[in-house]
Design a protein around this nucleic acid. Sequence first.
DNA 1: GCCGTCGGTTTACAACGTAAACCACAGTAG
DNA 2: CTACTGTGGTTTACGTTGTAAACCGACGGC
Lengths: 239, 239
Amino acid sequence: MTKRSTSKPASAAPTRRLSQELVIDAALAHIDRSGPHGLTMRSLAQDLGVEAMALYRYVHGKEDLLEGVVNRLMGDLTAELDEELAEHWQGFLQMFAHRVRRIAIEHPKAFPLVATRHPAAPWLRPPLRSVEVVETLLSTLVQQGFSDQQAVTTYRLFSSFLLGQLLLESSVRGADTGPVEEPLDEGDATIPHADGELTLDDAPEVLRLRPLLSEDRSDEEFEISLEALLDRLDRELSQ
Amino acid sequence: MTKRSTSKPASAAPTRRLSQELVIDAALAHIDRSGPHGLTMRSLAQDLGVEAMALYRYVHGKEDLLEGVVNRLMGDLTAELDEELAEHWQGFLQMFAHRVRRIAIEHPKAFPLVATRHPAAPWLRPPLRSVEVVETLLSTLVQQGFSDQQAVTTYRLFSSFLLGQLLLESSVRGADTGPVEEPLDEGDATIPHADGELTLDDAPEVLRLRPLLSEDRSDEEFEISLEALLDRLDRELSQ
DNA sequence: GCCGTCGGTTTACAACGTAAACCACAGTAG
DNA sequence: CTACTGTGGTTTACGTTGTAAACCGACGGC
């Protein structure tokens, strides 16, 4: 109604009763299409066909809302784990990794939040942010013969791996799924800032390898790297 | 002068002439102590003993300023590389990795910006965000016998590794170097939100391993993981 | 002397997060 | 049936943000 043109995909007021779950879901949906930057209390409210202040019945504030969103995202990570796979730590970790990756892929714009948002406890490393998840992971590992130290280290290695890989991946996916973010102005000053099409003169190698560079190998790369990590763990375990 | 109490460490107006460099440096310093969230055009201006709008002579806007900051951070990555080390790709990558790590450690609060801020080109993966850096990296690799594909993959693996490792590391370091961020209120609603001291009942394993978990092994872990990555690359190279 | 241009300030505004007061209704108690 | 109270939502309001636009003083060249 105002003048924003940035995608208000109808659904003006389909629901007649709010709830925290509903709010958070709407928030996630909104982020999915316009990025975290595009999420505003008012715009979200409008999505729900309601006034901004109404949201405050269900969330403490924006910060809290975002917290809710990442919980929503990473929440059902421990849900219904396949007992079969969980029997060997390799399969277990693999399954876990793929679950997280699926989330990152389904919500490329939202996933970075998981990384940014600092966790409740310093030893809760993104993207495995809930005590529940860490608990199942650690207990499973220890239960399968990992020493305490090994379990913890594995947890650390595993999370760095996931974070690095998926953050990067979701960043590129999030970009081409509609870079609705910051159109911003043109014009320049004395700033070295990003040129319209990037100066890759005197960068012959980059120029030459450009097709290779823009290729999307994320699937195989993830698989391979994960495999490498597991191998490495396996080696360190038996040694 | 207003009423902010959040650390204005003197230095009211030591300089009589502004410059883009100066502005960006001040911004970085400000972020270093209060986090990106605490950086405000007005507060930054005040640090420089000047009015907010003055900054716009040197930066296009806040977004641009942040861009400048990350460039400043990652800028001199290619400066004066040790020819000795660059003779073997292993030493080369190692040196690179340590340089980046040093930056992440010296600016824990600022480093996440490097990850968040999306790069000019999609194939420019954080934290190696400048064409220059990527150019030297790629050319060095190719020049030492890497195939094109191998060079590119190495670049990818290397950046994921750095990003995951250092983002996590800087996040914990940034936290205990003064969590000036979002003190926010107390009180609750129907929200699952982080309890004051986190409920780790029914998380016996986490509870038990807590000392292990909060231990800081980042130094060795980085070294070891880097080593592992290099080994893996070496293996894939010869095979 | 006058005149741009450069560096900074003043003023202004729209958009944001959110506190506080307000209102409309639905149950329920009497 | 009426009065009371809590619950869900709106209105109004305020402070803080980023930034556009107009303004202004000093200073160097003609």
